[in-house]
Amino acid sequence: MPDERTLEVKVWRGGESGRFQAFAVPRRASQTVLDVVTWIQRHLDATLSYRYACRVGMCGSCAMTVNGKPRWTCRTHVDKVADGDTLTVAPLANLPVVKDLATDMAPFFDKWAKAEGRFVPADERPADFHTVPPGTRASRAANAGIECIGCGICYAACDIVRWNRDYLGPAALNRAWTLVNDVRDAGNDVRLAAVAGDAGCHACHSQEGCRTHCPKQINPTASIAGLKRATMVAAFKGRL
């Protein structure tokens, strides 16, 4: 049976400058924030721009700012986040706004490249499958960060990104840390040099905004602390 209540939804319209536009959306049971945005686009204003793909929390494309906090909207229930009967939906912070709720993710992923976040095979043509011994310190560290879906929520939640536009950010550094712990990878000298310094891991203040908001319960702060240790060891060994 449909809920009789109505949700008042304020949605960001425009680009970097713009305004919030109010919509009235019928409240439903188990309604997600993405359901609300989609309902507005299908029934009230077809020009509303936003981004989503999988709707099940795998692709990382639907992140938005919901009542001031970055969230994955497809897995965020309205009941959990609505302030009474009101909801404010804005694009992710710390990224350029393309239009309405869609941000330009290019700066975010460019930083993955800057952090040398690509796999560098140690052996181009291995004769057999590599063995990754389970339960080792390295494999546990890589496992802890590997489920990142690249949604950009940690990047939007990070105060250091806000202060320092060059800062690589939690997701890119977390990616670098998973590769540092990948026994098949041979790119660590270049990678550690790329992530050291005031635009890299040493800028992190361990405020854990990333960890607080990560929908996958990853702890990028711990990954960044790992990079600090790894760069320190590399510096002592003269490899940085």
């Binding site: 992530v195 050291a196 890299g200 320190m232 590399a234 510096a235």
Partner: peptide, 12 residues
């Protein structure tokens, strides 16, 4: 400043 110098400052 290079990452190496920044790392050394951090260690210091």
């Amino acid at each position: 400043m290079t990452g190496r110098t920044e790392t050394r400052l951090w260690i210091a």
